[in-house]
Amino acid sequence: MSYERYLDGDPVIITAALTGGVHGKEANPNVPETPAEIAAAAQACEAAGASVVHLHARRPNGERAFSRERFQELTTAVRDATDLVIQHSTGGTGAPDDLRHEPLRTDPAPDMASLDMGPLNRYDHLTSENTRALVGSLAAEMRERGIKPEMELFNSGHITEARRLVEQDVLEPPYYGTLIFGGGTLTRPTPGNFLASIHDLPDETLFNTLGFGPHQLPFAAMGIVFGGHVRVGLEDNVYLRRGEKAESNAQLVERAATLAETLERPVATPDEAREILGL
């Protein structure tokens, strides 16, 4: 099914994940953290071929922020600078459930928001629980506010959870899920697991491909070839190549766009991405 999308030359949506909520400038000084830095990075990524921007808010010292006010300042800056599809993160290991809803409450609401589909471990003692109750309440608020969920599928159990939501009519097609590959509780990054994952997705699901760290480039290539979409950026990978840190998010987006064009898939514009995603 998905390889046909490649053969048909369907456009590939590139999502730029600019900042994240785990590391910051201590890992790579080019990670944007302030609203002005993030808006400038988003603008550069749009010029390089991104059509969706995935946003996390930070405090002035780079630490995590979840409040509506922080997201409002950030999303306004990015909207003013770009025409990108806006996707807010609702992720937040260790943050209370009520704060996880705050990124959905900006004016206007984001076009999309992430929906972490189940538990994953962090460090030695933390687990981002993402209980069914939280996933359900986030999905319900997204539906109420017209926000498309980007299901974050960190392992195969989360695909099972996605199938459950589809069966319960919680989501509206086309469904959109990001297959995530890496260490720890994530799906182990192998081509076999990638193929098994895309074949296990619910019908009518478009998939986005995310490999952490050194897996970003090869999994982007697999996503493009197998008719999926790709996510790149300093949130997930601070290196351009082994031993060489990336200079910017746009550098990683540009590489993904070049890869798509080399593999003869056109890169989606923001308007094309809206059409593909049913926004």
Binding site: G21, V22, H23, G24, A27, N61, G62, R64, G94, P96
Partner: peptide, 29 residues
Amino acid sequence: FETARAYCTATETFVEPMRADICNDRYDL
């Protein structure tokens, strides 16, 4: 850095933002 950031004197490194929430005992951490 232009703004003071969380620094762990045990590892002698700046702290990841997610870990800084643990250092500061934020939320239920």
